[in-house]
């Protein structure tokens, strides 16, 4: 089997982060997180682990909710959602995310769609994975212009969830909730520490020689190029078709 494309590598990196998750929700326009969740589900199925449920928001076919768009939030509040994905126009070194726009608020010169459910889900879902494919200092900033949801909260604020990791096209960071900071845990193949540092607007801890994120094993690649791609094509046909080349 040919080696993994960068996209395939990224999907496997995200899927590894979902270890142990049984119920996963994915936003409407998030093909890479959706693919990762589907790969995680397929791996659980072939290895005989308990079944994994995925709900893709806005999808008719891949949406197991029957109580309207409030049900995701209610089920997260009940602790039933193990993992969720968030992006953001800006993500800062303290794990704060901005989905609203650049300063000054409210007349943002650069206005993004809005906070969606992030101001709630970031607090409630145990494992929130931040995902931005483009790793750019305009995205990964020292301090966000607007806090849609904070990375950490004071101890007396009810908060069972929060950021778990940040995955970009260049690297994987883990979020240290006690320190309230990101730590580089791996570089994707072909990327080096200096370039990642230059492309990141916030400081982060790292090993002197950071490891490379693991390449997908043969089983993951064959699942990804077989059943996962077929299921993915139902929701993201264009994305699924060019998976192996991108």
């Amino acid at each position: 089997m040919s080696g993994a494309s960068p996209r395939e590598h990224l999907i496997c990196t995200v899927a590894d982060l979902l270890q142990g998750c049984r119920t996963i929700a994915v936003g409407a326009s998030s093909p890479i997180p959706a693919a990762a969740a589907m790969l995680h589900r397929a791996r659980a199925a072939v290895s005989g682990r308990p079944p994994v449920r995925i709900s893709i928001l806005g999808s008719v076919r891949h949406n197991f909710f029957t109580n309207g768009s409030a049900e995701l939030f209610d089920s997260a509040a009940q602790g039933r959602i193990d993992a969720f994905f968030l992006g953001g126009g800006q993500i800062d070194g303290q794990g704060n995310i901005n989905l609203v726009g650049t300063a000054p608020y409210p007349r943002s010169p650069l206005r993004w769609p809005g906070s969606f459910g992030s101001s709630f889900l970031y607090f409630m879902v145990p494992k929130v994975i931040l995902f931005r494919e483009d790793h750019d200092p305009r995205v990964l900033v020292d301090r966000v212009d607007f806090i849609s949801a904070p990375g950490t909260s004071e101890p007396h604020v009810a908060r069972p969830g929060g950021p778990h990791a940040l995955v970009t096209g260049k690297a994987l960071f883990r979020f240290d909730r006690d320190a309230g900071r990101f730590e580089l845990s791996g570089l994707h193949p072909g990327h080096d520490l200096e370039a990642v540092r230059a492309a990141t607007g916030f400081g982060f801890r790292h090993a002197p020689v950071p490891p490379v994120t693991p390449a997908p094993d043969a089983e993951s690649l064959s699942l990804l190029r077989g059943p996962v791609r077929d299921t993915l094509a139902e929701s993201y046909p264009g994305f699924a078709a060019q998976l192996q080349s991108a």
């Binding site: 768009s69 939030f73 726009g101 010169p109 206005r111 101001s119």
Partner: peptide, 25 residues
């Protein structure tokens, strides 16, 4: 993005009350 919304926000032509989904519910 929603083009008229963006323009109106930048120009200050409309008041935006930013919310989060479960708060509206």
């Amino acid at each position: 993005g929603a083009p008229c919304f963006r323009r109106a926000v930048a120009a200050g032509d409309i008041a935006v009350r930013d919310a989060t989904c479960p708060a509206i519910h």
